[in-house]
Design a protein around this nucleic acid. Structure first.
Lengths: 214, 214
DNA sequence: TTCCTTGGTAAGTGCCACTATCCAAGCACC
DNA sequence: GGTGCTTGGATAGTGGCACTTACCAAGGAA
């Protein structure tokens, strides 16, 4: 398969495919001669994956490159590869540690993890980007004066933990190691828009149940 | 309070505040004379809200304007205002109805709603942006060859419904109508980064529990 | 008086995800 | 073997976005 066909079958313009090749999101094809390169099904699959990450997952191009670099790094074990790939993701602005709300949020999230008994997460606290994102989100809500009880946060966390269990159960069903890493990373990236859409739809449903359409 | 103080108390530069005023995200202050305008606590609150939407919620400036327009529209009832504000949000690219995966996703999501008994959501199907986002997400996953069983999707949906119940219970605790709308919208916007962060943290925790750090 | 700050406006910046244009080298078909 | 299309490769340009800079004349504050 050559560039034109790859473009046709993926629905991505040749110009964009060239751009992805240049940016290293897609490995080069097998060079036949100066003006011809041959692509295979794996290229098509990778291209679809890249597109899904960018368009559905809203992951920036530079981040996709980082994530794939880890996914492809066969010198590492699965868990490490998965972790590295997921940690390459978030790009949330660093919390301002001077800010009083941020400090309070650190406290609050720390307590949350103790309440939940997430010992592993506690150990990783200083490292994980997810932890930082959580602190930023909590601080923003508190800054706006939303003071729900801490039980509410615990309840949300338990719901998301059950979602994570579902995620990982699904990964288990995949046989090969390579596929497991890819599935886990993609699943994590694409599960988010899915969960977000379900959340909004659920809000609409529940709102209509309670208040009707008026 | 004048521009400088508003800037100091919010941590937002005067240039950016001027930009927000120009873009209509912030109402003008009370003009004292040609070179002085007076801002109040409500301006500060609105400014923090705008910042949270943009920085934590990653909502584009133009969208924030739309959302606030609906929030402020007192000619409408609460439910309508809330719905309108939330529907102004998503900006997901339109699904390509020609695409076979998109058509299959429509089918699948329709079945999901029937299984869940979300009658209200079914009625709104053709309208809701959340529904469209869901279709796009499901189609993307299927296109990549991820074929989980439909029960998995149902399970995710039930989790998110429970999150939505928590959301709306919280809104109930707020007394005033105006606050309810604002709370609901902000809660919906800011709950998403929160849930996302909790989801990622929960994945790390669960992954570490199952596989350790190796 | 001298200096700073104010609101208002216009123009510029940096980043990002493409997109357009150009090129010389093949290949395909008549 | 001529004609026209496609290829990989490279460079430059585009449009959108969220600010940021620079400048202005008018108004306090010392």
């Amino acid at each position: 398969m050559r560039l034109g066909e790859l473009s046709r079958r993926s629905g991505v313009s040749t110009a964009t495919i060239k751009y992805y090749l240049r940016e290293g999101l897609l490995p080069a094809g097998r060079q036949v001669n100066t003006t011809t390169a041959e692509y295979d099904e794996e290229h098509l699959r990778r291209l679809r994956l890249v597109r899904a990450m960018i368009q559905v997952g809203r992951v920036p191009v530079a981040t996709v490159r980082e994530v794939l670099k880890h996914v492809d790094d066969e010198s590492l074990g699965r868990t490490i590869r998965m972790g590295a790939a997921l940690w390459a993701l978030p790009q949330v602005s660093e919390p301002d540690e001077e800010d009083e709300y941020v400090r309070a949020a650190h406290q609050e999230v720390g307590e949350l993890l103790r309440t939940l008994g997430w010992a592993n997460a506690q150990a990783l606290v200083t490292l994980s980007p997810a932890y930082r994102s959580l602190v930023v989100a909590v601080a923003a809500l508190r800054r706006l004066g939303y003071d729900w009880e801490s039980e509410r946060l615990v309840a949300y966390a338990q719901l998301m933990h059950r979602a994570a269990v579902l995620d990982l159960d699904f990964v288990e069903t995949h046989p090969s190691e390579a596929e497991k890493v890819e599935t886990a990373v993609l699943g994590a990236i694409l599960a988010e828009p899915l969960l977000q859409a379900l959340h909004r739809l659920a809000q609409e449903e529940e709102s209509a149940r309670r208040y009707g359409f008026e």
